[in-house]
């Protein structure tokens, strides 16, 4: 009888998942050992999958450069820094001073600057929300944000005044009670969704690993 390969993959995923899941609820040594081995293999495969992803990134930009598509000079720069960093990291190690130099002076400043842009973007977005949208949900969103900002940052004057203290208490009340209630509901909903999604995979209803 010829068995379809997809059935084998589904059986593997379900069996492995069942072993790992049972380990959450049963403290059995054999089960714990099997679970540890499987998780160890998963971590190893995750690292190798990261490498495959990087190779794919290399291939995509290489084709852009070789075919001189639109924006190919940027892809060339990307490939240059990618290969330089990878080679240096493989040769000297990721904890070498060279890599740290590049990390501290190239990657980190760029990433931090991108995060700094977010401050302007969020301010502009908040300004546009209050000027254009006038529904209750938007009003609650912006209003609560304004109150929390008032209670978070220092004031020009009267940072320790009564008003500042009042807004700080309002901020704490909003963040610790009102937002906490909504956050708990969101967390429960996320957990339920994660359980449903995970069970679908374990029961082979969803097969993201392919056929």
């Amino acid at each position: 009888m010829r068995v379809r390969a997809s059935l084998i993959w589904a059986a593997v995923a379900s069996a492995v998942g069942l072993i790992v899941l049972l380990g959450f609820f049963f403290e059995i040594e054999a089960l714990r050992l099997a679970r540890q081995i499987l998780v160890d293999w998963a971590v190893l495969l995750a690292a190798w999958a990261l490498m495959l992803g990087l190779l794919n990134l290399l291939g995509v930009h290489w084709s852009k450069v070789s075919q001189q598509e639109k924006g190919w000079p940027y892809s060339a720069v990307l490939l240059l820094f990618f290969l330089v960093t990878l080679i240096l990291g493989l040769l000297f190690g990721p904890d070498s001073p060279v890599i740290l130099f590049l990390f501290n002076n190239v990657q980190l400043p760029i990433e931090a600057s991108l995060m700094a842009l977010l401050a302007v973007t969020l301010t502009v977005a908040g300004f546009r929300v209050v000027t254009r949208r006038r529904d209750l949900v938007s009003l609650v969103f912006v209003g609560v944000g304004f109150l929390v900002l008032l209670g978070t940052g220092p004031w020009v004057i009267g940072s320790e005044g009564v008003l500042n203290t009042f807004f700080r208490d309002v901020r704490n009340w909003l963040a610790q009670v009102w937002a906490a209630g909504g956050a708990r509901g969101i967390l429960l909903g996320v957990a339920l969704g994660a359980i449903a999604t995970g069970l679908r995979v374990l029961l082979a209803a969803d097969r993201p690993y392919g056929e």
Binding site: S6, A15, I195, Y209
Partner: peptide, 26 residues
């Protein structure tokens, strides 16, 4: 054949997510 290791990773990840969501959050 590459679907086998992917199935292993997916199975482990799904089980961890389910177990963690139940015991850690729900």
């Amino acid at each position: 054949p590459g679907s086998l290791p992917v199935a292993l990773m997916v199975g482990v990840g799904a089980a961890l997510v389910v177990g963690g969501a139940v015991t850690g959050t729900l």
